[in-house]
């Protein structure tokens, strides 16, 4: 177990190092003037280009820059934003709560809808209920997140203005619960609907596989009530792949729910990233990308560990 964990952590660190290196090369490889021009944007005055070259030390050999870059990363120093002149870590910390609230709130919703729908679908396969759900799932998968988002905003603002729901920046619930909810409910639903479609499919498939196993037939044969067969015997085993997927998804989303945050103007990591790309705010892009990669790697490690507890057949060597 410990050996496995250490190996996974080492592998995760290697992946992060590769990500950092790739990002570094993407932005910094090439002649100093070209790099500075690219970072400043095509219309920036020459003084700005020169200033960027100086502050980032682009004249130094690439390898020296690379070592400096890695050293800063290891110290947790992500640099300073070109635009706002604030440390990147501060910007990220300011944006993190919005993303956290969005992801965890939506996660509760999509698990309820996804697993619930999957069970409903799998317990009566090929029934009208199952087929209706299958069509809904297909619609959910076909519906781009941003289209759903702007349709929701349109409905909330133009068709049903009485709901009080509106798009807008994140407001901490500790400051104003009402405002928090009125801005959060739509993003929650939007993200959850898109995710739930995938989870219905996954749960249904996994449930159907499990319910075909011999031990389920044995449970039925020995007279276990159908409810108990479904929930205690079937669902428990069927949830393993669902929980794996859940861990990976949450890890991925914590790195920024780019589309949902952008549509609703919720100021989280994802929107920070998009804004930085538009502004050419390089240190912020790099910082946010590496943070996102770290979340993904961490989530994958946690999922692998959780897997060994969920599925007794998996022995980690």
């Amino acid at each position: 177990m410990w050996r496995f964990l250490i190996r996974r952590i080492v592998f995760g660190v290697v992946v992060l190092w590769l990500v950092a290196t790739t990002v570094f090369l993407l932005f910094f490889a090439g002649p100093a003037d070209n790099v500075a021009r690219r970072l400043a944007g095509p219309r920036a005055p020459i003084e700005v280009v020169e200033q960027i070259k100086d502050t980032l030390g682009l004249d130094r050999p690439l390898f020296t820059q690379y070592l400096g870059f890695l050293g800063d990363l290891l110290r947790g120093d992500l640099g300073t934003s070109f635009i706002s002149q604030t440390p990147v870590s501060t910007l990220i910390l300011q944006s993190l709560p919005g993303t956290l609230w969005l992801v965890f709130g939506a996660a509760v919703l999509w698990m309820l809808m996804g697993v619930g729908g999957g069970v409903l679908s799998a317990t009566k396969p090929r029934s009208l209920r199952d087929r209706t759900l299958t069509v809904l799932v297909l619609a959910g998968i076909s519906l781009p997140t941003f289209v759903l988002g702007i349709l929701m905003i349109y409905l909330a603002l133009s068709v049903f203005p009485g709901t009080g729901l509106q798009p807008g920046p994140y407001i901490s619930p500790f400051i104003d619960v009402g405002a928090f909810l009125s801005t959060m409910v739509m993003p929650w639903i939007c993200l959850a609907v898109v995710q739930a479609a995938v989870y219905v499919r996954l749960t249904r498939g996994s449930m159907l596989d499990t319910m075909g196993e011999d031990y389920i037939r044995t449970a039925r044969a020995k007279g276990v009530p159908e409810r108990s067969v479904t929930y205690r015997h079937g669902l428990r085993a069927a949830l393993t792949p669902v929980i794996t997927q859940f861990g990976v998804d949450v890890g991925t989303l914590l790195g920024g729910v780019v589309v949902t945050e952008s549509v609703f103007g919720l100021q989280g990591i994802g929107q920070l990233m998009i804004r930085s790309v538009r502004d050419g705010d390089l240190p912020v892009i790099i910082g946010a990308a590496i943070l996102a990669a770290a979340f993904i790697v961490l989530a994958n490690i946690l999922v692998d560990v959780a897997y060994s507890f969920l599925d007794p057949r998996v022995r980690l060597a």
Binding site: V23, V258, A289
Partner: peptide, 19 residues
Amino acid sequence: DVVLSFPYLLVAIVLVAAV
């Protein structure tokens, strides 16, 4: 496995920012 564990969008954003 590693490639598939990264979201499309994150990679696209970084690439768009770079090139």
